[in-house]
């Protein structure tokens, strides 16, 4: 496969995932802001999506209106919702022949519609339906990819991009709220703490999953364990990095065994999560652990590009 094709598929995977993640993040932030009446909720979302610096170059205060505009519409914010959809569609168009018709239609229709619908998201009533729609569209895209794509190189690079982005997103979401999660497990949380823990779970659609696995009231260390170390949760960090590792392995095997630094890094990150214990992670500092994972993710993305995508 052409390196450029692989590059477009990889970024198609990343950007569709990113658009879905921004929608999830906004849904939770809007809910929290409504419950707590604090603008900090909007600010923590800016931090989680890596958009904080860009935001404060243009705006003074993280008000609802300003944050929504920045994260949904602003063409200068490459991590924003609409720019992500546009970038995904641009990459898809570059590799039309490598996509199935269902995938192309999913992304192309999303792009066409999103441009028309997005302005309404800034109104009070318009936000929630728009975010639900974006979430549904991203699920449709993965469904189309999972159901119709040949399990060949094209699939692997799309999947690789998706999983790398998803793992990174989960780490960032946790990191934003690490102070609330670092409390003692026995300590009874305040109402606000409880909402925070719930928010983390909601942002990865895992509030039910927590109950199914732990059968107990929300405890910060269990929330962290679920999102970092539990294989069963598809959006947990280990689930994502395991698939990154496996996908890179499959690519190496299909390519006659060629391996590089990206394979080593992915294996190392996977192993770190596979053999990690939540007590040790909390003792060593949740923030430190997550920051390191986020840095490793950046390095891994760079090494994948060097080995496969640019030459």
């Amino acid at each position: 496969m052409l390196s450029r094709t692989a590059d477009s598929l990889f970024w198609l995977g990343r950007y569709t995932e990113r658009a879905g993640n921004v929608a999830r993040g906004l849904t939770v932030a809007a809910r929290m802001a409504g419950l707590t009446h604090r603008d900090e909720e909007w600010q923590s979302l800016l931090v989680a999506t890596g958009a904080e610096t860009g935001f404060f170059e243009k705006h003074e205060e993280p008000t609802r209106e300003a944050v929504l505009h920045h994260l949904i519409l602003d063409p200068d914010n490459a991590s924003g919702l609409l720019p992500s959809i546009e970038a995904a569609r641009r990459n898809a168009r570059q590799v039309r022949a490598a996509l199935t018709v269902d995938m192309w239609e999913a992304i192309n229709d999303t792009w066409n519609e999103a441009r028309k619908l997005a302005p309404a998201a800034l109104t009070v009533d318009g936000l929630a339906p728009f975010l639900d729609w974006v979430k549904a569209r991203s699920l449709l895209f993965y469904g189309a990819a999972a159901d119709t794509m040949l399990r060949d190189e094209a699939w692997r690079f799309t999947h690789l991009g998706t999983m790398l982005e998803r793992g990174d997103n989960t780490a960032r979401l946790l990191d934003v709220r690490h102070t609330m999660l670092a409390k003692q497990p026995e300590a009874e949380g305040s109402a606000i703490d409880y909402l925070q823990w719930q928010a983390v779970l909601r942002s990865v659609s895992a509030q039910r999953a927590y109950q199914w696995l732990y059968h107990t009231r929300l405890q910060p260390n269990l929330v962290a364990e679920l999102l970092i170390l539990r294989q069963e949760l598809p959006r947990s960090m280990i689930a994502c990095y395991r698939r990154v590792d496996q996908t890179l392995d499959a690519l190496a095997n299909a390519g006659g065994g060629r391996r590089g630094e990206c394979h080593r890094l992915a294996g190392e990150l996977h192993a770190k999560l596979k053999f990690g214990r939540i007590e040790a992670i909390m003792d060593g500092g949740l923030h430190e652990f997550l920051t390191e994972c986020i840095d490793r993710n950046v390095a891994l993305g760079g090494q994948i590009a060097t080995f496969y995508l640019t030459h």
Binding site: M1, L2, R4, E153, R258, L309, H311
Partner: peptide, 27 residues
């Protein structure tokens, strides 16, 4: 697509020792 060949752009190709190569995920 119909011919089953790659659709390349200029940047996908390079020339070394007067031979044309394309950049692929397998080198």
């Amino acid at each position: 697509d119909e011919m089953g060949v790659e659709c390349v752009e200029g940047a996908d190709l390079f020339v070394r020792d007067d031979i044309v190569f394309m950049r692929t995920t397998n080198g």
